[in-house]
């Protein structure tokens, strides 16, 4: 068996065990608490093939992307400014740390009080909750830049833009990809909370409906949509990472 197939098998095995445990529980407990696995599977597929339902998944996906891209670009600018000025870092860093301590639910409350318009509120919540992590991760990636490579590049006297293109971007790419992977999971959790308040569509809204209908199979099916979405995006980031970092040597011996 090839190493790829083995990896897929190992990754699937854990999920199969989880499904089996759930199925056993569904046979002993009432179905409104633990609906059978085939029922959850049927509802999951139904969402995927029904256009009006799939729209909700895509809407949530879009909100995640808007939030992440917004936080990424703002965070990258802040990180670059912080890397250039120690004074600004001393000024901005405590503010970001303060923001990091604010729970997602508090941002939801602030957004409802401060703003009108559901989409703007959700975008605001998404950006505010993921911004500190993006900023700190990008700043850390810039800081980890090799002094040797910096001096070598500077010896050619590049313009700021050339330095950014030829040294800073390739140096921070691994850190950026890791930041995206970490923040994607956070964003998927936050978006549901954000959608619970005021949204008239999306996975969070649908989850709220399933709760009101006391429909566990529906709740599971909608949750799985979000999990699947995160998995697909994670795999895409992994593929980008494999391509962008293909220059890295790989040791035959594992850690």
């Amino acid at each position: 068996m090839g190493s790829g197939s083995m990896r897929v098998l190992q990754a699937t095995a854990g999920m199969i065990v989880l499904a089996v445990i759930w199925q056993i529980l569904s046979m002993t407990l009432p179905p409104f608490l633990f609906p059978p696995v085939p029922e959850i599977f049927k509802r999951t597929v139904e969402i995927l093939i029904t256009g009006s339902l799939l729209i909700d998944v895509l809407l949530t996906g879009g909100r995640i992307f808007v939030g992440l891209f917004g936080a990424f670009f703002i965070g990258a600018v802040i990180a670059l400014v912080m890397a250039r000025s120690k004074t600004l870092e001393n000024f901005v860093s405590p503010v970001l740390t303060f923001f990091q301590g604010i729970p997602a639910l508090s941002w939801v409350v602030f957004a409802i009080i401060w703003f009108q318009g559901t989409e703007f509120r959700i975008a605001f919540i998404m950006i505010m909750t993921t911004l500190p992590a993006f900023t700190f991760q990008i700043l850390d990636a810039i800081r980890s830049m090799s002094k040797d490579l910096f001096e070598m590049t500077m010896s050619f006297r590049p313009s700021r833009w050339t330095l950014f293109r030829f040294l800073i971007v390739p140096t921070i790419v691994p850190g950026i990809l890791t930041a995206w992977k970490v923040n994607l999971g956070n964003a998927a959790r936050v978006v549901v909370v954000a959608e619970l308040v005021g949204a008239t569509g999306g996975v969070g809204y649908e989850l709220l409906r399933q709760q009101q209908l006391f429909d566990m199979a529906g709740a599971m099916a909608w949750t799985l949509q979000l999990v699947l979405f995160v998995l697909v995006v994670q795999q895409t980031i992994n593929a980008i990472e494999a391509w962008a970092l293909s220059y890295r040597p790989v040791s035959e011996r594992s850690i």
């Binding site: 040797d148 490579l149 010896s155 050619f156 030829f166 390739p170 220059y247």
Partner: peptide, 27 residues
């Protein structure tokens, strides 16, 4: 000014050819 450092200071994400081209690209 061209500098040869104590260690090679090659960019690991660039091939040998791309590393040699660095200064030319800056210019």
């Amino acid at each position: 000014i061209g500098i040869v450092f104590q260690n090679d200071r090659l960019m690991p994400w660039r091939t040998a050819l791309e590393n040699v081209m660095l200064g030319l690209q800056v210019l």
